[in-house]
Simulated scan of single mutants.
Amino acid sequence: MRIGILTGGGDCPGLNAAIRAVVKRGSSEHGCSIVGFRNGWEGVIAGDAIPLTRDDVSGILVHGGTMLGTARCHPHKVDGGMEAVKDTFDNEKLDGFICIGGDGTLKAAGKVSQKLGVPVIGIPKTIDNDVVGTDAAIGFDTAVSIATEAIDRLHSTAESHNRVMVVEVMGRHSGWIAVTAGVAGGADIILAPEDPFDIDKIAKKIRHRHRYKDFSIVAVAEGAVPKEGSRWNAEDTLDAKGNPIAGSIGSAVTRAIEEATGFPTRLTVLGYVQRGGVPTAADRLLGTRMGIAAIDGIVSGETGKYTALQGEHVVLEPFETMMGKTKWVPEELFAAANGL
């Protein structure tokens, strides 16, 4: 068999582990030829392909990012994109695609599978951890580890200067990083998109805390939103399409806390550092396991699905399970965060 592989959407640690697993397992166990496409679905549309051998993937396990490059491109949204994907599939004499990506890239993979009848298996990767059907996605553990370390480091500065430290982390639509890193790092207040906030209540909580502690840590997801009707102007934190502007919500919350409490308040925006660098052991392992499951699945003909970690096992879920849906932070985890 001849299998194409691509990575789409934002980069994250652990992608190379999945690519490596597909190539090594595919060539050694199944006798497959693996073809890599540069820059996600853009590369498939353009026919920008390179052969991948065991030698090509040697040593990439510990590297962040993706050796294939990536781009935010969905072929069903590009004029002639779907036709170009089919042409590349035929011209390269492929037997299937393995697509590694977040919710948008996997939705595109689902459409390629459904509309073109092309065998496709997806592998979920996103530091936001918002793909429905899988307990974790590649890149999430590393991002949480980085965010937790940042919160740990800010504790000493906050305490030394008697300040409120606001940390903005990624998470446009769901607050997995903010909540998990916030709990792990001992943040005093956690703001996430699933739980709209009231700035007056936040200020009251900080003032109460400062009766016995002279510092506070606030973890904020970039997509956090105020409660409807609360004293807040959210328009300054959104772009023309209504999407959160990185750094804007953190900056607005920082100003509002300082104005409401009178306490010196400082902002740290982690930004892209959450997506870069060496993957954790957990992400290397998850990428490897999902890569193996993907190539095994495509060889056995179990396609139109994506790999999913469910409990202790990696299984294959139909694309329909995740398409058009978002995995929200559960109320139980919010309750745990708010109860500390």
Rank of each mutant, 00 (worst) to 15 (best):
H74P: 07
H74W: 11
M82G: 01
E83Y: 07
K86D: 14
D87P: 04
T88D: 02
E92S: 10
E92D: 09
F97K: 02
C99Y: 02
G102R: 01
D103C: 11
G104Y: 08
G104E: 13
K107V: 08
K107D: 12
K107G: 12
A108Y: 00
A108E: 01
K111D: 02
Q114E: 15
L116S: 06
P119F: 04
V120W: 00
I123Y: 03
I123T: 03
I123H: 01
T126Y: 06
T126G: 09
T126A: 11
I127F: 06
D128Q: 02
D128P: 02
N129E: 06
V131K: 02
G133E: 01
D135Q: 05
A136D: 06
A136I: 07
I138A: 04
F140M: 12
D141E: 15
T142Q: 05
A143Y: 03
A147M: 11
E149R: 15
A150Y: 05
A150L: 08
D152M: 10
R153G: 09
H155V: 13
S156I: 12
S156H: 09
E159V: 11
N162F: 14
M165K: 03
E168Y: 09
E168R: 13
V169S: 03
R172P: 03
S174I: 09
S174K: 06
W176Y: 13
I177R: 02
A181D: 00
A184E: 06
I190W: 04
I190A: 03
A192L: 12
P193A: 10
E194A: 12
